[in-house]
Design a protein around this nucleic acid. Structure first.
Lengths: 129, 129
DNA sequence: GTCGTTGCAAAGCCTTTGCAGGGAA
DNA sequence: TTCCCTGCAAAGGCTTTGCAACGAC
């Protein structure tokens, strides 16, 4: 993998933003560094970085495809519908192996929680804790 | 909503198959009843049935969009990578409210488990329970 | 007879791919 | 100089939409 300004910009976007990002966000942030960055280049580099094991692809229903840095400890996600940020929740709130029906073999899982994050909540008195 | 043979066929597909189905599966099963059923008609009717509250749309990462009957008790999903069926897991294996970070407000969640189902497991001696 | 529904085809999104020019090594 | 990578444009897959004909009521 050859180093190019676009590729470095995309990597910088992820080191500067420690939460999952979608293609549009990656494109916008990369264009702040290299204004001519093309969406095809973003797709190509993101796919390369996933193959390389530097990024991980996540599908957050119903938001779509997001990417985050690989190598993190097991975790899940919380999506704030106000600020539209996907937060990482460390650890696993899943009751395993009871979550898996008897006789079934567990190979992996995803947990997606939706709601309102603490800072959006604090910004709004009506928010119920 | 006017009753048409296509619409009735799509409803029958769901009453005959008690697990989430994707558009392609709905189309194939509906065409077994009305062979001329068109994919645009499936999309239109499925969207109408979702608006009507008869169906619920689910996004199963990374499989894509599925639909199931509405009104079921709270449940989650298990996808068998052998038979490609999405099984419904009744109840909730999530450790709430501990799953939600302090100060965050929970509004909903999805849990998707992947692995091998019991019957595919029994069909293969190598399968580890 | 109305007017909602259907099939078909075109168009819209998101993502990938072909290609020629450009730039990293 | 080599040849990988980029931008652009076209194409591919999934979903929606425009339109004329059809058919449920």
């Amino acid at each position: 993998m050859r180093n190019t300004p676009q590729k470095n910009a995309i990597r910088k976007v992820f080191t500067d933003n420690d939460h999952p990002l979608c293609i549009k966000e990656i494109l916008d942030l990369a264009q702040e560094i290299i204004s001519t960055t093309n969406i095809a280049t973003v797709y190509r580099n993101v796919n390369l970085l996933v193959e390389e094991g530097w990024l991980v692809k996540i599908e957050f229903p119903p938001l779509g495809t997001y990417y985050e840095r690989a190598g993190k400890a097991h975790h899940h996600y919380f999506y704030c519908r106000k600020c539209k940020v996907i937060y990482v929740i460390p650890g696993c709130p899943l009751d395993l192996p009871e979550a898996v029906p008897s006789g079934f073999v567990h190979e992996g899982h995803d947990v997606f929680i939706r709601g309102i994050c603490e800072s959006c909540c604090n910004a709004n008195e009506k928010c119920e804790h």
